[in-house]
Design a binder for these strands. Structure first.
Length: 259
DNA sequence: ATGGTCGGTTACCGA
C-alpha cells in the first residue's frame, strides 16, 4: 500500500494537481491538510471516477483536512477525543480526521501554526499537541499513522537557516519537546531515514524564491506506530510537485508499506 | 525589523 500526505493549500484550486499526483505515483491513500473547503465544496467527480472515496472535515476556509482512499475508507472520525472544539466543529476547528484504510488507521492532522511565540495561538498549539498525544497513546497498539503538517521543525537541520528562526515558532524548545514526546511514546518518523538532511524538506515559503534555492523546512511528517513502522519499505518527498507555477507551498510525502 | 507571495467568505487576514 502506498500512503501519502500533503498540505495542499486549497483542494479546489489544485484538484488537477491532486489527480495528477495520485496517478503519477499510483497512490492508494492520500491525507490532505489545508483543504480550504467545506464538505459541500469538495471537487469529487474526478476523484470518484478514478475509484477513490473521500472523507473530509471542513467547516471554514482555513483548516480543513481530508483523506482520499481507493483501499477502503471506514470508521470516519472527525477530531480526536479531547481535541479543542471536539464535538463542536462549527466552532471553527477541523484539524483532524481519522479513517481506516486497508487495515491502517490514518489520522490526517493539521497542527495549529502558533503564529508568534507571544500569541495565544502558540499556547493553543502546545495544548492541542498535548491533547493529541494523550489520545494517540492507545492507538500505539495497532497499525496507526499520524500524518500531516505538524508545523514543527524538530531538528536544527530541518530549517534552511536556524539563526533566522531565533525568535520564531516551529523551532522552540516546547514545540520540539511536544514532537519528541510522540517519539518517546513509541511513534517513529518513518520518512527521515529515507530522506535525510535538506533533501527532506517538505515546505518552502512562496516568497523570495525559497524553493528554487532550497531554503525550506521539514515540517510534514509521517509518524508510525510500531506495527505501521515495521511495514514501511520506503519513503520519499515529491519535490517535483513543488516546482512550477500553481504549486502548493508544501510537497507531498509518500510512504510505501509491505502488504 | 521588514518584506516577499499565495488563497479565499478578498479590497483584508492567515500562512
Amino acid at each position: 500500500m502506498r500512503l501519502a500526505t500533503w498540505n495542499v493549500n486549497s483542494l479546489r484550486s489544485r484538484i488537477g494537481r491532486v489527480e495528477a499526483f495520485l496517478e503519477r505515483h499510483d497512490v492508494d491513500v492520500l491525507a490532505l491538510q489545508e483543504t480550504k473547503a467545506r464538505d459541500d465544496q469538495l471537487p469529487l467527480m474526478g476523484l470518484q471516477s478514478m475509484g477513490y472515496e473521500v472523507a473530509s472535515a471542513g467547516v471554514n476556509q482555513w483548516n480543513g483536512v481530508a483523506v482520499i482512499s481507493r483501499v477502503g475508507l471506514d470508521d470516519v472520525e472527525v477530531g480526536f477525543p479531547g481535541m479543542p472544539g471536539w464535538g463542536d466543529p462549527v466552532a471553527g476547528e477541523a484539524r483532524a480526521i481519522g479513517v481506516t484504510c486497508g487495515g491502517v488507521r490514518v489520522w490526517s492532522l493539521y497542527v495549529p501554526n502558533g503564529r508568534k511565540v507571544d500569541d495565544p495561538h502558540y499556547v493553543y498549539k502546545l495544548d492541542w499537541l498535548a491533547r493529541l498525544r494523550a489520545a494517540a497513546q492507545p492507538w500505539l497498539d495497532g497499525p496507526t499513522a499520524l500524518v500531516g503538517d505538524w508545523n514543527i521543525a524538530p531538528l536544527d537541520e530541518d530549517v534552511f537557516d536556524i539563526a533566522a528562526f531565533a525568535r520564531s515558532t516551529h523551532v522552540t524548545a516546547p514545540e520540539r519537546a511536544a514532537f519528541q514526546a510522540f517519539l518517546d511514546d513509541g511513534y517513529a518518523d518513518v520518512v527521515r531515514p529515507h530522506s535525510p538532511g535538506p533533501g527532506g524538506y517538505t515546505y518552502w515559503d512562496y516568497y523570495r524564491q525559497r524553493f528554487e534555492r532550497n531554503r525550506g523546512m521539514r515540517i510534514d511528517f509521517v509518524l508510525g506506530s510500531p506495527a505501521f513502522a515495521s511495514a514501511v519499505t520506503g519513503a520519499f518527498v515529491d519535490r517535483d510537485e513543488r516546482a512550477g507555477t500553481g504549486a502548493s507551498d508544501h510537497a507531498p510525502v509518500v510512504v510505501d508499506l509491505a502488504d
